[in-house]
Write a protein that binds this DNA or RNA. Structure first.
Lengths: 244, 244
DNA sequence: CGCCATTGATTAACCGGTTAGTTAAAACTA
DNA sequence: TAGTTTTAACTAACCGGTTAATCAATGGCG
């Protein structure tokens, strides 16, 4: 098979399929995405999908695999920086915010899998839970515990740190269309995103630190150290808010 | 048509259909729910769905209508209690937690509609945004502003209060299956829910109040004033975690 | 080099199951 | 009997997946 080792790339088709699948699946979900649409979007005959992949579900898994790897790597890198437990927590929250910004497909994937798992249909969730989330949660738990012992952090429930940090970010993006209608803000205007991003860490800092002045200082430092990423290819990001 | 005004109830069929529809739609979504299943679950012939409702989507809208009303009423009631802005915010957060607990269908509906709205297919969201959410958000904004002016609350971003209060609750329920696998906790054990419920308000209090001791006192008061509701008909609540 | 066989890549056309929605008649009620 | 409620049976569309065939390199061989 020349699938994997053909340098003269006659199967860019496979790559196009994966890209198209990622687009469609992250926009419509596994059940909602149409194989015909994926094929058309990849400028390829539908049968070719089944030449390269066993079935729709395999394609779905393959399409998200690399995204998952990228996110995993990115998150763990945050924990490498040398800083206090409190700063680590701020960095994790900000990193999560930026991930949703730049890797929206992952967020979409996670939400879908969560629902699919409700129905006992997800194999990805159990895998991710053990391999990725459990270690990450352990790290967060340790950070909170250390921070509390050292007197840097308030005596907060460590799981609530997780729920608050991650939940507020997820909810922000989830409820954005609603907010646009309810208030008169444009939630995906970069300037507004930057404001929200800042507010998110500030609020977390306000909750976590015993000495709020110290917390505010760390927040400023973290914001300076982690500039807001460019939202790569805006069309891809906006795609889901426009009619096709 | 005896649809609306027949006291001698020969159309309990209609009620059974609505109840079944609510179950199926909240578990599987508009696209995922099967009309055959709804009919079977209501012990009714499928054609009867189309006798009482124009089509699947109308049934979907009708099924959620009453839930929406109930939730609306319940939320606004919280704002009637006479207390400080800070306590109002705590009560709203706790009320939201309890709503997810007792009216899970509404949460499910909101998430679905949010996604559907992404695709320009939801008519409910624009309606809810103007009629229900905008006023609620205004109230929260006022509460935060007043609280800051009076010196009760820190100078926090009012929208972040919304995102953090609501987001952490939503995320808790959304990620529960994941947490069960990653940690060794049973997230829907009532005892554990009670712990999380308490931690949620405590964390919020820790973030909001200038005087954390005062905040903690309010938190205790609110928790005492709003006991955790019974989770009515547990089977319905667990349903989505079991195979049919 | 020139011919053919092999093999990977790609496609058009089709299949069978599923599902939203319809119809026409039966059953019930007043 | 006249109107309403309920049903069994049917239809049309859609969609995931298959099949059988074509196209385009590659490589062996005389």
């Amino acid at each position: 098979m020349a699938k994997t080792l053909n340098p003269t790339s006659p199967d860019q088709a496979r790559e196009r399929i994966l890209a198209a699948a990622l687009r469609e699946f992250s926009a419509h979900g596994l059940a909602g995405a149409r194989t015909d649409t994926i094929a058309a979007s990849a400028k390829v005959n539908k049968a070719l999908l089944y030449y390269y992949f066993k079935n729709k579900e395999s394609l779905y898994a393959a399409a998200f695999e690399e995204v998952i790897d990228r996110v995993m790597q990115n998150t763990l890198a945050v924990l490498d920086t040398q800083c206090t437990p409190g700063e680590h927590l701020l960095r994790l929250a900000l990193n999560h915010f930026d991930r949703i910004l730049t890797q929206h497909e992952f967020q979409s994937f996670m939400q879908q899998e969560m629902v699919r798992f409700h129905h006992g249909k997800s194999t990805a969730i159990p895998h991710l839970a053990g391999k990725a989330f459990a270690p990450l949660l352990k790290k967060i738990q340790q950070a909170v515990r250390q921070g509390i012992r050292s007197g840097e952090l308030c005596n907060v429930d460590w799981m609530q740190v997780v729920y608050s940090s991650y939940g507020s970010n997820v909810f922000y993006f989830m409820s954005a269309p609603m907010m646009r209608l309810s208030l008169s803000v444009e939630p995906f205007d970069p300037a507004h995103i930057a404001l929200r991003r800042k507010a998110a860490v500030q609020f977390l800092g306000n909750a976590l630190f015993v000495d709020r002045t110290h917390g505010a200082k760390l927040v400023r430092r973290v914001l300076a150290a982690m500039p807001m990423p460019e939202v790569r290819n805006p069309p891809a990001w906006r795609r889901i808010y426009e009619r096709p």
